[in-house]
Design a protein around this nucleic acid. Structure first.
Length: 197
DNA sequence: CCCTGATTCGC
DNA sequence: GCGAATCAGG
């Protein structure tokens, strides 16, 4: 499989939408996520920066991985990129051909993208709660026995009722919950002080 | 263990 | 240019 123009285009589009490399690879077919990532890098769009201001992954990377027996060693890494980026891509989809008769267009929901940091003092963030509410709608409603190592174990409903189930959506990291539920589960202790009794 | 992207380097 | 292997982290 070669990177035809169309494939590259799709790659760009999906990557821009925040799709993961594996998803893109799966969509394209015939390539692995590594291939996708490699291509992404070669294309120079490794960073999904929008310039919003929430970008902190600028870590110092220094891991030459000295595994090769012979290392030229004459190649000092310049490592000096001012990285000027005055012109982002304000335009992405100039038009939307509304020619589709009656077809469901992508029901996919982008995952990563501008995830602004949280302001500060707050309860549990209406945002997070809203996300939970939304996520519960498409929850898989698993029973206790259906839970696996990677299903969200967030309980919903009243255990004493038939109307009780677990979220069941895929967890992401080593957490017991899905992204949305992790958000509300691990809320740092907030304003507790005003709770005088 | 699952996933994510990042990097390196032989091809 | 390509991508598997590897790394690093959640």
């Amino acid at each position: 499989m070669s990177w035809s123009d169309e494939r590259v285009e799709l790659l760009k589009k999906m990557w821009g939408e925040g799709q993961s490399a594996s998803q893109i690879a799966k969509e394209l077919g015939g390539v692995t996520r590594n291939a996708v990532i490699g291509k992404v890098h070669r294309l120079g769009l490794s960073n999904r920066n929008g310039g919003g201001g929430t970008a902190a992954p600028a870590e110092a990377r220094a891991k030459p991985a000295a595994k090769s027996t012979a290392k030229p060693a004459a190649k000092a890494k310049p490592a000096a990129k001012p990285e000027a980026e005055p012109a982002p891509e304000p335009e992405q989809e100039p038009e939307k051909p509304a020619a589709a008769p009656v077809t469901r267009i992508k029901p996919i929901i982008p995952a990563g993208q501008p995830l602004p940091p949280q302001p500060s003092t707050n309860e549990i963030d209406p945002k997070a709660l809203a996300k939970v509410s939304e996520v519960e709608k498409k929850a898989k409603k698993l029973g206790l026995m259906e839970l696996t190592s990677r299903t969200c174990k967030w309980p919903v409903g009243d255990p004493a009722t038939e109307d009780f189930w677990f979220c069941g959506l895929p967890v992401q990291a080593g957490k017991p919950y899905c992204e949305a539920h992790v958000g509300v589960a691990f809320q740092p202790m907030s304003s507790r002080r005003d709770r005088r009794r």
